[in-house]
Design a protein around this nucleic acid. Structure first.
Lengths: 155, 155
DNA sequence: CCTAAACATTTTAAGCTTGAATTTTATACA
DNA sequence: TGTATAAAATTCAAGCTTAAAATGTTTAGG
């Protein structure tokens, strides 16, 4: 995980250190979430992300919008949706007037299922970030705003 | 990516927001790195991580130590090393006195190759985190220390 | 009407990732 | 010594991920 201090000044090194720490924390939290989703809900993180996006969209989303929103490739979304459809959590609905696209929706079962996971998800995060008080959480959140990843963010 | 505000108090929500932002930034940076490693060095992020760990270990590492250090499964490391060996960047060396284990080392070519990537990697990170000054980088870094992922961290 | 370009999605090949099962080797201890 | 247990690594099946190619559909221009 260390990137090898091959060159660079002090600021560059401090930024590199920051990045490596972010990476470590993120991976650790993701590992925790993945483990619990697997053992307690027989699910996965990508499925959770997809369901969260669909849950937030009352009328469902086109595959298109889904992959844009989650910032993953469209082929990727196809596979995840395929499996969610198999499990009866999601359905593909034809769009009138455009036979290219489909609208993807959570089923009643899917919504129910997601609600259960989401409640626990928030609890897990709350526990994992126990060492961070509200002020710090807010502060870091603000700082993160300056970082690259804010092209057309909607959340 | 939004997790659905299903329950929780204000602190819990602030922590959730923090997590979602960390996730977004991390994924964006990873996507950038992956893209550049691919197009400019015909490589990948997992390979870079493995090579970084080996570069830092003068005498190489056992598969065991490698997977522990990178916090990924051992089966995973096997595959990545297989491909690095194919490419001549890494070699497996028998350990005297224990025929179960192997020591994995960067070859001269591998070290050379990694050095090139690492220099650029630090530049990329430095550019991606341009909006963060030294003080902030240090501050966030310190705060991240309080977060879960610090079991037996060595960096 | 026809056709070229744009669009939405799926398919494909390659690689990453995990947890579980398997294989091989070492160690402990009866 | 013999055998059970532990340890190191690989293999396996399933799923995630990407970039690129292919498929089918719509739209715009001539």
């Amino acid at each position: 995980m260390t990137a090898g201090n091959v060159a660079g000044n002090s600021l560059s090194k401090e930024r590199l250190r920051l990045w490596l720490r972010m990476l470590r924390v993120t991976r650790q939290v993701e590992a925790e979430l993945r483990e619990r989703l697997r053992t307690e809900h027989d699910s996965t993180l990508p499925r959770f992300d997809v369901m969260a996006a669909l849950y937030a969209a009352e009328e469902g989303l086109k595959m298109n919008e889904l992959s844009k929103r989650l910032r993953v490739s469209n082929g990727n979304v196809t596979g995840i949706i395929d499996r969610l459809v198999e499990d009866g959590a999601v359905e593909r609905i034809a769009i009138e007037g455009d036979r290219r696209a489909t609208r993807v929706c959570l089923t009643v079962v899917g919504r129910e299922n997601f609600r259960g996971m989401a409640v626990e998800h928030e609890r897990w995060i709350n526990a994992l970030f126990e060492g961070v008080n509200e002020e710090d959480a807010h502060h870091i959140g603000e700082l993160l705003h300056r970082l690259p990843a804010s092209p057309n963010n909607a959340d």
